[in-house]
Simulated assay, not measured.
Amino acid sequence: MEITVYLAGQIHDDWRRELKEKAQEKGLPIHFTGPMENHSRSDNIGEEILGEQPNKIAKDEAASQMNNLRTRVLLNRSDVVLALFGEEYRQWNSAMDAGAAIALNKPLILVRPEKLHHALKELSEKAQVTVETPEQALQALSYIFETE
């Protein structure tokens, strides 16, 4: 059995790559998906498809349409959503993706530092699992495959 895990959260560091490498080292049958990690591509995809937009707001809205389509399809195909909230960046996309996972009745693993416990308490109560590090999230995923 292979599962698909959607990795929601910040795109400004290497946490996804590191998690994928650790899962591969453990031999876990997990296929990972997630948002477009190429920030420039994500910001410009609307104009690439729809053509030049009249202003920055229209450009953002066109890109949002394409990114929302991509996210919706990939979230729908996922078995589990792992949403990481870090301390350094505002996590609007993480919150939206976590909310979508809940609305789609997808199992949710919430990764957040202890510092963000209060800010994310309601979201944490909706998640199946709340942990503080990506490594703990990977341990939770690994547990799915244990038989004894």
Rank of each mutant, 00 (worst) to 15 (best):
L123K: 01
R72L: 15
S64E: 10
D79A: 06
T33H: 03
T147L: 11
S40V: 15
E88V: 02
E18M: 09
M1W: 06
D43Q: 14
A140H: 08
L74A: 14
P107Q: 14
V5K: 02
M96Q: 12
N55P: 01
F85A: 01
I57E: 14
M66K: 08
T133S: 08
L120K: 07
A63F: 01
W92C: 00
L116Q: 13
Q128V: 12
N93M: 11
W15P: 02
R112G: 06
A103K: 11
S64K: 08
V81S: 05
E21G: 02
E122F: 14
V81D: 03
S124I: 03
I49P: 04
L19E: 01
T4E: 13
A58M: 05
Q10C: 07
M1C: 02
V81A: 07
Q10K: 03
L82T: 03
I102W: 15
E122T: 14
E25D: 10
T147M: 08
A119I: 07
V5E: 05
K56A: 14
K26W: 13
A58W: 01
R41P: 02
E135C: 01
R70I: 15
R70W: 14
A103R: 10
P113I: 08
P113G: 07
F85C: 01
T71G: 11
E132I: 02
I3H: 06
A127H: 05
K20A: 15
N93S: 14
N38R: 11
